[in-house]
């Protein structure tokens, strides 16, 4: 009960969360390998969404280039592993540091020059694309030829070197996403969370209340970038191959942000709900369109679904869903 109170949940919501967790823990034993692979995609989307949500949902700075941090995390840890045999658990920290530095630098440059709003969003795209093209020519990490992690056929999962089955990654990601949930909640409940939200709502008023807006925005970006990079490391060791054009793709940046937006921007559970819905939708469409054999059908329905959501629930599904189920999340 204390845990539920700490998360600001009603008993009913705590029960629902407990049930959800129990199902998630048992799920790999109940479903086939295909479903597990889909669930891994869901958890990646949820975790990346949660990381992005801190920057845009909490602190209100629209970043459209988060693939940059996925890529920096993925490439740093993978390259250290391939070239020096460094364990990904240390490589991950290096990746987070690189991403946090890059994020802070981009944020510092933009906000120092008073680049805000839409301009900031476009600047984040520009940095991501610029980096993608640089990596296309970065021979040490394979350039356009790609960077490959040796695939070992192991009898057992090897968590130390992050070599293993999708089920291992499923549980790692589940833990990661839960940790992100707890962290997000705890941040929102502290001074820093209040300050971020104040900045999101009205920067001038935030300043007048003594908030060093510049510093707090950079902190949000650094944390968000580092968390994203951590997910990038897992992605690299899950996929085993990295190409700049897929890792840093603009399409990935967009994917990262759709889930939290349709789930409910700035809410704790929105990114998770959005990830389930979006991945489920995508998989269904893929299966349907293979059945009908019409290329483009999948994207068409996907677009139509996005349109329906933004028309019917523009502030996201989670606020609506939690009300409908009686799991009222306190207003943020």
């Amino acid at each position: 009960m204390r845990a539920s109170r700490a998360l600001g949940l009603s008993p009913r919501a705590a029960a629902a969360l407990g049930l959800f967790l129990a199902v998630m823990l048992l799920l790999p034993f109940l479903v086939n390998a295909y479903i597990v692979s889909v669930l891994v995609v869901v958890l990646f989307a949820a975790y990346f969404g949660q990381s992005w949500n801190i920057m845009t949902g909490f602190a209100g700075q629209l970043s459209l280039g988060h693939a940059l941090y996925v890529g920096l995390g993925a490439y740093t840890s993978a390259a250290l592993f391939v070239h020096f045999g460094l364990t990904p658990w240390l490589g991950m920290i290096a990746g987070m540091a690189v991403a946090a530095l890059a994020g802070s630098a981009i944020a510092a440059l933009s906000f120092r020059f008073r680049v805000g709003g839409v301009y900031f969003a476009l600047l984040t795209i520009a940095f991501a694309e610029f980096t993608r093209i640089l990596f296309d020519h970065f021979g040490w990490v394979g350039a356009t030829e790609g960077l490959f992690l040796p695939v070992a056929n192991l009898a057992h999962d090897d968590p130390v070197r992050l070599r293993g089955s999708p089920v291992m990654f499923y549980y790692l990601l589940l833990v990661l996403s839960l940790a992100a949930l707890v962290l997000s909640h705890s941040l929102l409940d502290r001074r820093v969370g209040y300050y971020w939200q104040a900045i999101r709502e009205d920067e001038e008023a935030a300043r007048a209340l003594g908030i060093d807006v510049f510093r707090y925005k950079i902190a949000a970006m650094a944390l968000s970038a580092a968390m994203t990079a951590l997910g990038g490391t897992l992605l690299a060791f899950y996929d085993n191959n990295l190409y700049p054009d897929t890792v840093f793709a603009m399409g990935r940046s967009i994917e990262i942000i759709i889930a939290p937006i349709i789930g409910g921007l700035g809410t704790l559970f929105g990114p998770i709900v959005g990830a389930f819905l979006l991945t489920g939708l995508g998989e269904t469409m893929t299966n349907l369109s293979t059945y009908f054999e019409i290329s483009g059908l999948k994207q068409w329905f996907y677009g139509a679904a996005l349109l329906a959501i933004v028309a019917l629930q523009p502030s996201g599904l989670w606020p609506w869903l939690s009300r409908a189920l009686g799991l009222w999340e306190r207003r943020r």
Partner: peptide, 30 residues
């Protein structure tokens, strides 16, 4: 959506963009 937040406008136009590309794919192939 004119007075809505940036991210909602972004999602709306992204949906429109996705549907245009998808329609072209269906009509003309890749």
């Amino acid at each position: 959506y004119i007075a809505r937040p940036d991210h909602e406008q972004f999602l709306l136009l992204l949906a429109v963009a996705t549907m245009i590309t998808a329609s072209l794919l269906m009509g003309f192939g890749p």
